[in-house]
Design a protein around this nucleic acid. Structure first.
Length: 219
DNA sequence: CCCCAGGCCGCGC
DNA sequence: GCGCGGCATGGG
């Protein structure tokens, strides 16, 4: 009987060999060097904008913010709600997200707070749910919290036959993986890539590299 | 026309 | 605790 620990690491290694390093989270370091802002601010802002939204649309919003040098907490706080709405419109839910961005920028200013803020404190901020909290903690705070998203839930259900709520799945990963921040970052990114390529809503199992150890391979 | 995309909130139960 | 409707743009 293989342990979950062995299987999880095996899945990680297979995905890594198959797809290569993903190097999440993408940030424009050159922009922040010039403007004197912090790349971690872009990660937090992107984490809000990408909620249930394709990254392609998020990139349009991020470009708009850069164009007016507003990709920073300070500018997000000072800009009018209406102006912020228009800049992030391509990312969808723009009225809600404008409120969320202002609240998050205010509460996490300066961005160095991501080094110390607790998960519970993040979850008290309107607009930050479990996934966004863990995304901020892992990718901006460089802290060992495993991010669970819809893709992760789908793959875990099919490959391991496990269905659980968010916290249950997070513990499944954190308790069965070495506490390695770079591993957490890369694994999450690889799971997303795999879900997009093969483990779609309607699974495309032909050519899937995980078929051998998957509990529910089709065909 | 349809469905989907790197969720969250507020509500009812 | 879980399920649901609302939120919105852009691509396939």
């Amino acid at each position: 009987m293989k342990s979950s620990r062995d299987s999880l690491l095996q899945v990680f290694k297979l995905l890594l060999v198959s797809y290569g390093k993903q190097n999440w989270w993408p940030v424009d370091r050159e922009y922040h060097r010039k403007e004197g802002s912090d790349p971690r601010e872009e990660i937090v802002i992107g984490a809000i904008l990408t909620q249930n939204t394709s990254w392609r649309n998020v990139e349009k919003a991020l470009q708009n913010l850069k164009r007016v040098k507003a990709l920073s907490f300070k500018r997000i706080i000072d800009i009018t709600p209406e102006a912020l709405q228009e800049l992030i419109r391509p990312a969808g839910y723009y009225r809600q997200k404008a409120v969320y961005l202002k609240e998050v920028a205010f509460r996490l200013y300066p961005v160095s707070k991501v080094e110390k803020v607790s998960r519970e404190e993040l979850l008290e901020i309107k607009g930050i749910g479990r996934e966004t909290a863990d995304t901020i903690l892992l990718y901006a705070g460089n802290r060992p919290y495993f991010v669970i998203d819809a893709y992760t839930k789908r793959i875990v259900k099919r490959v391991f036959g496990i269905e659980d709520n968010y916290e249950g799945l997070r513990k499944f990963f954190e308790e069965n993986l070495p506490e390695d921040i770079e591993l957490y970052k890369e694994f999450h990114a690889l799971l997303d890539e795999h879900a997009k390529r093969f483990c779609k809503k309607i699974p495309q199992c032909e050519g899937c590299i995980l078929t051998q150890l998957c509990t529910q391979p089709l065909r």
